[in-house]
Amino acid sequence: MLQAVIFYTLAIAAVIAGVVVVTRRNPISAALALVVAFFFQAALYVLLDAHFVAVTQVLVYAGAIMVLFVFVIMLLNLRGDQGAALPQPSARAQVGLAVAGLVGTGLVTSLDALRRVDMGPAAEGFGTIQQVGGLIFDGTYLLPFEVASVLLTVAMVGAVVLAKREI
């Protein structure tokens, strides 16, 4: 019961913050509302005992990605009053909406069908930082973890190649 109350409070707050993101004219306000939405989402993850995902959510999304957003907004020097009126939905947008609706229906149906499958309770400690760390470093997911470092190296080299002025 208590869990349900907490869940719905957090969920509704997250949705409200999400609506604020798309309705604000001032990009900075929209970005800040997004941070709020991210935090509520992180709280939802904690409620699911997914500690690792919650921490990552705060560090990566609320932290790093938001800083990037704010940087871009400030570099472009966007102001609220410059925002153009919302464009009328074109034919393409309607096709897009139809496809999105189709995919959304598929996802909802499949989630609904999932209720009928007995998944059993998650293992003790599932999703905790300790277990995630264990999975990575005891060898199970060691290879993808190491390849991820290759990925970061490539991304870094690539960013330098594309961005530096004089070669």
Binding site: V150, V154, V157
Partner: peptide
């Protein structure tokens, strides 16, 4: 060479996680 590394990992990936990361190594390069 980086991209080729990703491609080779992609050809051998038996797990969807490794497959995805290898795909990204290939694509980003």
């Amino acid at each position: 060479l980086f991209s080729a590394t990703g491609m080779m990992l992609l050809a051998g990936a038996n797990d969807l996680i490794l497959l995805f990361i290898a795909l990204e190594v290939m694509s980003i390069a």
